[in-house]
């Protein structure tokens, strides 16, 4: 519980620091991009640290390279 709150506070602090700075410089596209990235990171962080089963990115790797791997490492 404490980690979640800490994490959320951190993400909020980062967004409060970065987004106004970008908007002040009139970099709207960058501000939108960063807000999106922060949101994605926040959701991902909460989901993974709460031990909800997120499929590992390595599953894509396995799907693509399994035939090649089986051929290369045959005895």
């Amino acid at each position: 519980m404490a980690e979640t709150i800490l994490f959320s506070l951190f993400v909020l602090a980062v967004s409060a620091y970065e987004v106004p700075r970008l908007l002040r410089k009139r970099h709207v596209k960058e501000a939108v991009f960063i807000s999106f990235l922060l949101l994605a990171g926040f959701i991902l962080g909460i989901v993974t640290t709460k031990l909800i089963k997120v499929p590992s990115p390595l599953i894509v790797l396995r799907y693509i390279y399994q035939p090649l791997s089986i051929w290369f490492f045959r005895k």
Partner: peptide, 11 residues
């Protein structure tokens, strides 16, 4: 922050 989440998810 995104990397923090993926570092958990990868393994």
């Amino acid at each position: 922050i995104v990397l923090f989440g993926t570092a958990y998810a990868i393994s």
